[in-house]
Write a protein that binds this DNA or RNA. Structure first.
Length: 422
RNA sequence: GGUGGCGUGUCUGAGCGGCCAAAAGAGCACGCCUCGAAAGCGUGUGUUGGGGAAACUCAACCGUGGGUUCAAAUCCCACCGCCACCGCCA
C-alpha cells in the first residue's frame, strides 16, 4: 500500500508509476476521490459524536424532567451518530479497497517497459563450449534419469503434471544446497527460520500476493487459508502488527520452506523437467530495515545471490528487471539468470526485490525511532531455489558420459566429488 | 472434539455501566542529589485518524465483529487466540 499522503501530494508520480507497470492510472483518481469522501464522512461523524459525548455527560448530572428531555434528545442523536458511523466505515472501506489496487511506486532507476526491456547489468563466468569439448550436452531430465536423481514420470503419476520426486543423489543434492545456503546465511548474520507454509488471509494479502498474483496461489477454501508460494510471505508477516526497535534494525532472516505455485497461465511453458513446478523448496532471505538503507541493502542481498552462484561455479548474468515485469510490491528487482546449456539461454534462478515500505504498510510493521514511529522497508531475495539450481548444476557440470562433477563448495556437504551413473 | 478459565498500554496488573486513555508497580527518558554511580526524590512517557501554519483541539482504540443503552473496557451474542484438564492421535 502506498501512503495516502504521498498520493495526495504526488498524484502524477503515482500515475506515471502505474503507467510504467502497464497498469491503470485511473485508480489514482479513484483513490483520491474515495479519500475525499472518506474525510468528509469522518468530519461529519466526529462532529455528531462529540455532540453526543457532551450530551451523555450532562445526562448523568441532570434530574427529573430535565433528565427525561435530555434522554429524548439523546435517542435522536444516537440514531444520527449510528448512521454517520455507518457512512464513515463504508467510506473508509471503499478507500482502502481502492488503495489496495495500487502497486508500489517504481524506483526511478528501474527500467521502463515490458518483460523484454530489462537492463543487462553484467555477465559473470563463461558458458562451456561443448562443441570444442566434442559432445552434445544432455538436458537435466536425461541427466536426472541417468543419475537416478529426478523422477518426473512418477511425480506425474502420483500428483500430476509439474510434480517430481528427487531420489538418491538428487535428494542428497537438495540437502547439500540447503545446508550450504543456510550456513552461508548464518555466517552473514541472518537468522535461520523454518516458517509455516499455510497462512491466513491477512498475511497473504499484506504481502501483496492477492492482487494480480492471486491466480497463482493455492487456497484451501474449507479452512480459509493459503499455501505460500514463497517463504517471503510468512517471513514478511512474521512481524505483522509490530513496532520494531529502530536500534535493532536491520533484522535479517533466512527462511527455508516448501513453495506452492499453481502456475496458472503457464500452460505449455517449460513443460519438460523441473524448471517450472507446482511444489519446490527454497531458501529465502528477508530483511526489515530503515527505508533510507533499503537501496544499499538491496545491493547487499544481490551480492549474496551472486556469491552463491559463483560458489556453484555457474555462468550467469544479472538483469535489472523492467517495470512491467515487477511484482506489485516491488519498486525494483534484480534477477540472476543462470546459463542453461541445452536451452542456449539464461534462465532466472534467483531474484531480489526492494519493496520499500509497501508491504510494511499493508502488514502494519513499524519502527520506533526515538519518539516517532514510521514504517520499515522490506526486501527479499532468493538464496537458493532448489530445482532450478539442480538444473543449472547438472547441465553445466556434466561430463560426456552423463556423470556430473560436484562444485567444490558442495563437496563437504555431499562427501562426494562426482555424481555417478546408476 | 469436550469442559473450565483468561484476553486491558513496553511489561506486570487493577478496573466490571457515566467522574476511565484507563489505578498501582516495573521499565524507559529527562532533571535534582553525587567526585561518579547505585539508592532516593521530582517530572514526563501509547497508537491511529480528522481539523489547524502552529500552540492546540476533536474523534477512535481495553482480542475481533455485532448488539443493548442517552452513555460500554465494564452487560449480551458470535468468532478468534491463549492456558488448564479430559478424550483422540502421534
Amino acid at each position: 500500500m502506498i501512503d495516502i499522503k504521498f498520493i495526495r501530494e504526488n498524484p502524477d508520480l503515482v500515475r506515471a508509476s502505474q503507467k510504467g507497470r502497464g497498469e491503470d492510472p485511473i485508480i489514482v483518481d479513484q483513490v483520491l476521490a474515495a479519500d475525499t469522501a472518506r474525510r468528509d464522512a469522518i468530519v461529519e461523524f466526529e462532529a455528531l459524536r462529540a455532540q453526543q459525548n457532551l450530551l451523555s455527560k450532562s445526562v448523568g448530572a441532570a434530574k427529573g424532567n430535565e433528565r427525561l428531555a435530555l434522554l429524548e434528545e439523546g435517542k435522536v442523536l444516537s440514531a444520527q451518530v449510528k448512521a454517520a458511523d455507518a457512512r464513515r466505515s463504508e467510506a473508509e472501506k471503499r478507500m482502502h479497497q481502492f488503495a489496495l489496487l495500487l502497486s508500489n511506486v517504481l524506483d526511478p532507476e528501474a527500467p521502463i517497459g515490458g518483460e523484454a526491456d530489462f537492463l543487462l547489468l553484467e555477465h559473470v563466468g563463461t558458458p562451456r563450449d561443448f562443441v570444442a569439448e566434442g559432445f552434445e550436452p544432455k538436458d537435466h531430465v536425461e541427466l536426472g534419469k541417468l543419475l537416478g536423481a529426478i523422477d518426473t514420470e512418477r511425480g506425474a503419476k502420483v500428483s500430476g503434471a509439474r510434480f517430481f520426486y528427487l531420489t538418491g543423489v538428487g535428494a542428497l543434492l537438495e540437502f547439500a544446497l540447503v545446508n550450504y545456503a543456510i550456513s552461508s546465511a548464518v555466517k552473514a548474520g541472518l537468522i535461520p527460520v523454518i516458517p509455516p507454509v499455510l497462512v491466513n488471509p491477512p498475511a497473504m494479502e499484506g504481502t501483496g500476493f492477492l492482487g494480480q498474483a492471486a491466480e497463482d496461489i493455492y487456497r484451501l477454501e474449507k479452512d480459509d487459508c493459503y499455501l505460500v508460494g514463497t517463504s517471503e510471505v510468512p517471513l514478511a508477516a512474521f512481524h505483522m502488527d509490530e513496532i520494531l526497535d529502530a536500534e535493532k534494525l536491520p533484522l535479517r532472516y533466512a527462511g527455508y520452506s516448501t513453495c506452492f505455485r499453481r502456475e496458472a497461465g503457464a500452460y505449455g511453458k517449460d513443460t519438460r523437467g523441473i524448471i517450472r513446478v507446482h511444489q519446490f523448496d527454497k531458501v529465502e532471505m528477508f530483511t526489515f530495515c530503515r527505508p533510507e538503507n533499503a537501496g544499499v541493502e538491496h545491493q547487499r542481498i544481490l551480492q549474496w545471490e551472486k556469491d552463491f552462484l559463483n560458489a556453484m561455479e555457474i555462468p550467469f548474468r544479472v538483469i535489472d528487471v523492467a517495470s512491467g515485469d515487477l511484482g506489485a510490491s516491488a519498486a525494483r528487482k534484480f534477477d540472476c539468470e543462470a546459463w542453461i546449456p541445452t536451452q542456449g539461454t539464461y534462465r532466472e534462478v534467483t531474484s531480489t526485490s526492494n519493496c520499500t515500505e509497501f508491504q510494511a504498510r499493508r502488514l502494519n510493521i513499524r519502527m520506533r525511532d526515538g519518539k516517532n514511529t514510521s514504517h520499515v522497508a522490506t526486501l527479499n531475495g532468493t538464496a537458493v531455489a532448489v530445482p532450478r539450481m539442480i538444473v543449472a548444476i547438472l547441465e553445466n557440470h556434466q561430463n560426456a558420459d552423463g556423470t556430473v562433477n560436484v562444485p567444490k563448495a558442495l563437496q563437504p556437504f555431499l562427501s562426494m566429488t562426482r555424481f555417478e551413473l546408476v
